[in-house]
């Protein structure tokens, strides 16, 4: 995002000079229609007055943001205090998404390294195998996950059968189930970018380090990880961001006992609340958070490349 501006075409020939504006048109149109317009509508709606039972009245209002940050009691007539409810919901979502990202990294990184170290002809097969489950609809996969994890499901039956546990593990309707669900939903988004980075890595560098008596851990930490870091960062962002707004796994696997960002926003549009400006405001706050994370990581990356 932020890095793109610097690389402009100063050294390019003048072949396309006249046509350049027009050649960029599809890209600009896509950005305008798919990014600027929807976000713009959301931004405008978040500053409008809510209409009872959904919809907006075209009058400017801060109320949605006020509701997010200030608590005025059950009847809305007490002096304002800081509202922790929504901050708590955001924190819970960030936590769940963070754990899911770490789980994906812990499994995804070795998987990617495994694939990248196979013979070149085998690699596409492994990549293909990683993507196969994702040809099935996410809803179906999430429901199947619930079948696997439930108290009398195959996982518990197997563990009971081999005597590892004496009571079934209670996983469904817990945070762990949500984290596992998110992890499973977005794992390939971690594996594929890391694989792309590791595949380009020259393993003779590791061998050279080992020849110079670097222990394995040092080779991993000082040689391999820095070289594939862009892939890891990309993978983490690709898992973290959709996890943050997801509501399928929290609803189905977590039992929907607590709002996540996604279900909180959904409730404003589909539930009784019918408070569209508040839903839009919560979305804008989420978007701002995500943009801060992305800008931060882009700057980090840029700094590293400049070094």
């Amino acid at each position: 995002m932020a890095g793109g501006a610097a690389s402009g075409g100063s050294s390019q020939s003048d072949t396309y000079a006249g046509a350049r504006v027009w050649l960029l048109l599809p890209a600009w149109a896509t950005l305008l229609i798919l990014v600027v317009a929807p976000v713009g509508i959301m931004l405008v709606y978040s500053f409008l007055t809510k209409e009872f039972r959904g919809g907006v009245i075209w009058e400017f209002s801060w109320e949605a943001y006020d509701q997010f940050f200030f608590n005025r009691g059950l009847f809305g007539d007490e002096p304002p205090r800081i509202e922790w409810t929504y901050i708590l919901i955001f924190w819970r979502s960030i936590w769940q998404a963070g754990v899911a990202t770490l789980l994906s990294l812990a499994i995804g990184f070795p998987t990617a390294c495994f694939i990248a170290t196979r013979a070149p002809r085998q690699r596409p097969i492994w990549v293909f195998l990683v993507t196969i489950p994702y040809w099935v609809n996410l809803l179906i996969r999430t429901v199947s996950m619930k079948f696997l994890l439930r108290d009398n499901g195959p996982l518990n039956e197997a563990l009971l059968g081999i005597g590892v546990i004496s009571e079934p593990l209670h996983i469904v309707n817990t945070n762990l189930a949500v984290q596992l669900g998110l992890f499973y939903s977005y794992l390939p988004f971690m594996v594929l970018p890391i694989y792309a980075a590791v595949e380009r890595y020259n393993f003779s560098l590791s061998e050279a380090a080992a020849d110079l008596y670097a222990p394995r851990w040092t080779v991993l930490r000082r040689i391999l990880l820095p070289a594939v870091k862009p892939g890891i960062v990309a993978g983490c962002i690709l898992v973290f961001v959709p996890s943050l707004g997801s509501f399928l796994a929290p609803d189905l696997l977590g039992g929907a006992r607590n709002f996540m960002i996604g279900s909180l926003i959904e409730e404003q549009f589909k539930g009784n609340a019918g408070n569209w400006p508040f839903g839009a405001a919560a979305s804008m706050i989420l978007l701002t958070l995500v943009l801060i994370i992305l800008l931060f990581s882009a700057r980090q990356q840029g700094r590293q490349e400049a070094r």
Binding site: L74, G76, R257, F259, N272, A273
Partner: peptide, 17 residues
């Protein structure tokens, strides 16, 4: 009516926060 529904919305959010 709206003013009561808003209290109900608040109760529901409190319940699910």
């Amino acid at each position: 009516p709206q003013e009561i529904q808003e209290v109900y919305d608040q109760i529901w959010t409190n319940l699910k926060k």
